[in-house]
Design a binder for these strands. Structure first.
Lengths: 180, 180, 180, 180
DNA sequence: TATGAATGAGTTTTCATTCAT
DNA sequence: TATGAATGAAAACTCATTCAT
């Protein structure tokens, strides 16, 4: 039987998600995580080997959720071009909901060195999946077009975070439409 | 008479530049900075009000240096299209020299919340300057083209950091050429 | 099963009591407290939110202990006048045992500004309790007499600390006797 | 020729007076002193051997000024009893002007251990002078009366600081009057 | 599964003092 | 006389992790 709201493990993950995403990995202390999750300190280490393990769990869940959200948007359209447009709408939607905090993966990437091999891999895998996802929608297009759309998509995320503004998403959306 | 190599203040800034850029702001402790700079702890606070002040100094110097480097590359070409191509070559060059650590400003942006208003401003100002710089080169083009090149340029930086690979720069360079 | 001597929390409080009282609050560093208490630095913050919280705990325990000590002395006498005399004897006793360090509350008061509202309140409450305690013993006397005895009592504490000598207690004791 | 407002040495002393008195000796840092005095750090050590030397200078100047202020009040009256009353009025006046910060000497005493022999001596000497001053006014009274007035006088200072209220001065003033 | 206690090493910042000019 | 630069030690506090129960 499931717990009423969520079990400690999930509560830890949800809190870490919030904090790692919104204030950064290194800027977030274990103390804050357990406090906001409402669990004992040792309980964290019962479910997650280390802070980094928690980070990985966050990234993995985020990957699943984010890709699902993206798919929900692209599924509403039929043609490739419209699906791509819907993908940009997903970004707009995210920006609103998450106050322009940008891409969780690219943000963590900034705090990651080559020594954190595992983290780096998860981040790269996420982006490869995204790239493949967009590529599949555009399976009739040439590789150059696929890449072009992907790069505009990435810019849209990063630049709207930078300026705290939707214009990069809207502009990139138009540019992508022009390519198709 | 000038000091032999460099004075403590500059040494601190150079060390901070290295560390903040390569391993992140929050992941870098004051201890490491003073140790690698070879100065006493209190000397840091003699020259910089706080760790954040040192960060701002780093970003400001980086802005100047980076823009100068970019200009050096674009100055080697005559026509706008070639200048833009040279700009991408600057990115390639940076990637090599700096081991794909990407954009110092976007990296710090990832560690920045809206509470760090001053830092955010410096980052945004840097990008505005870059955007204006590219826009000036393309002064005969429509705004949409200017923006398009800018967004591809930004993607090139971020994605080559992500994949630790030059392909995004090379692809984006070709795409930009196609637009002009 | 109880701990052998005392648990870390109590040991911290006892050490803080000793140090805050004998060398002052600001002159006492956290380092010294944990060292003499034989606990790890972080353990202090496990039990006490901050140095000021530890100070408050010290004052509260001191209040309880001191008032109990006073009562123990006054309880040995039957009549009000004798009880007051016993109260002064308590001061003499304290001076001997604590090497003329005076009143813990007045000492901390000297290091307290209006910004430390909570500390100030604890100090004032202690003195109000003392005043009420003496007032109760002298419940048949007029308010002016109660106040007079209280002021002499306070002087006795402060001046014996100042001169490192019992004479102020002895003189004040006589003067109080003369009033009753 | 004197400097327009005051020379660095006096400015340091005045600033130290303000800070040591109002926020305590240990709570006051050299930084704050030189900053508020508007002198260079090294200039402090040019005029004063150490922080403690500055403290001694403060206490000595305070002694002179305070005793002069007291004399100014007692000089307005002719008879001993009235002079004593005027002395209490001086305390009231001080409380108003100095926001109930109490006695500079007793405050420093609280931060002083037996190791600070010199400081302790200055403090004791101040009080001895005060006691002698009041004793001289009451030269026709018995020693017990002199002491009694002195102890009430001291209480008045301490207790009005404690309660941030003039009542202890007013009450003690009446009590003293009753003794004469 | 869950937790409160405990910790050594770390954090950023300030201390009082001295030095070179 | 005056000062900006420099410093070792210390300040209060937090870090991520482990242990005993």
């Amino acid at each position: 039987m499931k717990k009423k709201i969520s079990d400690p493990k999930q509560r830890l993950l949800d809190t870490a998600t919030d904090l790692f995403y919104n204030q950064g990995y290194h800027a977030t202390g274990i103390n804050q995580v357990i406090q906001e999750a409402g669990v004992a300190r040792a309980s964290l280490y019962l479910h997650y080997e280390s802070k980094e393990t928690l980070l990985l769990a966050f990234l993995q869940q985020r990957h699943t959720d984010w890709m699902a959200g993206l798919k929900r948007f692209t599924d509403t359209a039929a043609k490739p071009k419209e699906k791509i447009q819907a993908a940009f709408d997903f970004l707009s939607d995210n920006n609103e909901k998450e106050h322009f905090r940008g891409c969780a993966f690219l943000n963590i990437l900034s705090e990651t060195t080559d020594r954190d091999a595992e983290v780096l891999t998860v981040i790269q895998d996420h982006k490869k999946d995204l790239r493949a996802f967009l590529g599949d929608i555009l399976h009739k297009e040439k590789q150059a077009v696929k890449d072009h759309v992907y790069l505009l998509f990435e810019s849209a995320i990063v630049e709207s975070q930078l300026y705290r503004n939707q214009w990069p998403v809207q502009e990139a959306k138009k540019m992508a439409a022009g390519l198709l």
